[in-house]
Design a protein around this nucleic acid. Structure first.
Lengths: 224, 224
DNA sequence: CATGCGGTTAACAATTTGATAATATCAGAA
DNA sequence: TTCTGATATTATCAAATTGTTAACCGCATG
């Protein structure tokens, strides 16, 4: 999935379409529009948007119809869908959500609230992926507990991994020995000074990449 | 698998607390309650709910404070959070969403709308380990409780199946032993440490396929 | 009531990890 | 240069963690 998220908006009122489009484009999204249900389906098939904002009341196929049709296709099973509606009718709202929508907004719509909601949805969706840090050739994947350097995986033991992850969490920053002890070993455990050195050495060895610099008398820092 | 989702509700009005609790329990959720912000934090730490519903206006720490505190801790980075508010103030709503909440509801709250929204959020979150998973030669059919590898069916016992299904639901991800215990055995049951190992072994044996890797000191992960 | 299966545990083996001691190196101060 | 305070390296050992096997219990089934 590319970084720029595509959003399809379907509404039969040109004014609303324009306002929403303007605001979402301002937030950095790529926006596609449709004036009715059928057009929305066409555009969805053509562009495969990440999010579809559907007005419920549209001539021809209404929003709920469109949602149902889309949800039947595997390609759109996971696409985010938000309903817009002029009527704040509870029954419709519930039916909308149960059709498989992710949110439901009633008009009049505040553009800022809309963009906040859109952002919130994408924020949540992006978290589903594994949380990993990329630093040049080096990828540290906390979820998979794997270090990947230039395409090949490197296995580190727990302490080694956590130590590297800590240093890499703020590249360039010098971590004091005490800081490292507290973060990796915790305040309870007490270990000798050489312990850190040994682990640093093992990391350097396994990565055979000189990315950890010693700052004599102070601590260590990570740099590529 | 203990599929039962835990929901924590924090509100200082006992009536609202009760109504929401009743409705969500009716939907099959496990509900925990808190009367103020501090209590909410305690309960969150204790129970690790899947969703937290926070009233914004509470004595002591308000909902936004609680959300901020929780979001700073890695353990609650991914927890779903919904705000409730008596004031339909746009600014507050936007601030709430930008704090990292997933939704924002204004009072008076329709219990049915609330449950619809809650369902919608969980539906989205669960999209992964739903019905059946295909992974190369391996097919896992949740409905039929059947594993199929290279065309032939393999019979696994329930726990074995659940365990494999869990690991396979996110290939590559390392599942901590605690995570496995919570997902497969539930929070109530307490079993010894060797129990997981033994089941892992049985799976490895029956599949005679080296797809489960142990990450010493951390947990297990599934990879083809 | 015997049998088999699933699930758990105990007991021990095998393995890996992490800490330390001992020794070597190195950079800067005297 | 020599000394000194620091870190690097190496080997070693104890502790933590997991693998394996067999035994046990409860329960459903014939």
């Amino acid at each position: 999935m590319s970084n720029v998220k595509k959003i399809l908006i379907a509404d039969d009122e040109p004014d609303i379409l324009e306002i929403i489009q303007f605001n979402l484009q301002n937030e950095g999204y790529e926006v596609i529009t449709a004036k009715n249900g059928d057009e929305a389906l066409d555009q969805a098939k053509k562009h495969h948007p990440d999010l579809i904002i559907l007005d419920i009341m549209m001539p021809g196929k209404n929003g709920i119809d469109v949602c149902n049709i889309l949800r039947m296709q595997p390609a759109f099973k996971e696409t985010l869908i938000i309903f817009l509606s002029a009527l704040s009718d509870e029954g419709t709202e519930i039916r909308g959500l149960e059709t498989g929508a992710d949110d439901y907004l009633t008009k009049p719509i505040s553009p800022k609230v809309l963009t906040s909601k859109v952002n919130a949805l994408f924020r949540r969706l992006n978290k589903e992926g594994s949380d990993s840090v990329q630093l040049g050739d080096l990828k540290i994947d906390r979820e998979k507990y794997i270090i990947n350097y230039q395409g090949s995986d490197i296995i580190l033991a727990r302490k080694e991994f956590e130590l590297l992850a800590l240093l890499a969490s703020k590249p360039g920053k010098v971590f004091l020995r005490n800081e490292i002890l507290n973060q990796v070993w915790g305040t309870e455990v007490i270990v000798g000074d050489r312990t850190i050195d040994v682990h640093i050495r093992k990391i350097r060895q396994k990565l055979d990449l000189d990315c950890i610099t010693t700052v004599k008398g102070v601590g260590y820092k990570f740099e590529l």
